[in-house]
Amino acid sequence: MKNHVLRPLWCVLAAIALTLIVRHFMVPADFGVNGESFTYSYHRLSNVDEWRDFKAKYKGREYCQECHEENVAETSSSKHQLIQCENCHGPAIDHPDDPETLAIDTSRELCLRCHASLPYPDNPRSRIKAIDPNRHNTDTACIECHNPHNPNLEEG
């Protein structure tokens, strides 16, 4: 065969070889069909562990209870017993090491998430005592009068 036919042929073959070599080094060994089907399981297997090792920020009431036993006990017998500590106090992460103190959300907006009055009599929302935020002591923080750990005004 003539040179002008062979030369591009060699170029194409070299390009294919180069692609295969690069692919061999670039694609991780655990990449492939790691499961039942090519359609849904074609992936890099070690990524599952990467997601598993993602850091959890919310620790739950039991973690808070280890140090703040009194507060947990007070809340547990109040109407707010179902609310997780971290909903208002923020995620514990590595508290007390990092962060040393948690920024507590004491805003009216936080309380209004449940206690803003909505005209929905058929909705479970209506079982919660509610106020009209535009009328009920508009300039005062809720916690001035209501103790979030024991919101009952008669007891608190």
Partner: peptide, 19 residues
């Protein structure tokens, strides 16, 4: 919350839901 359910916890949204 794959990192939580794989370690015996609930998802963050399940934990946060009081109802």
């Amino acid at each position: 919350c794959y990192h939580r359910i794989s370690n015996g916890q609930q998802t963050a949204c399940v934990d946060a839901c009081s109802f």
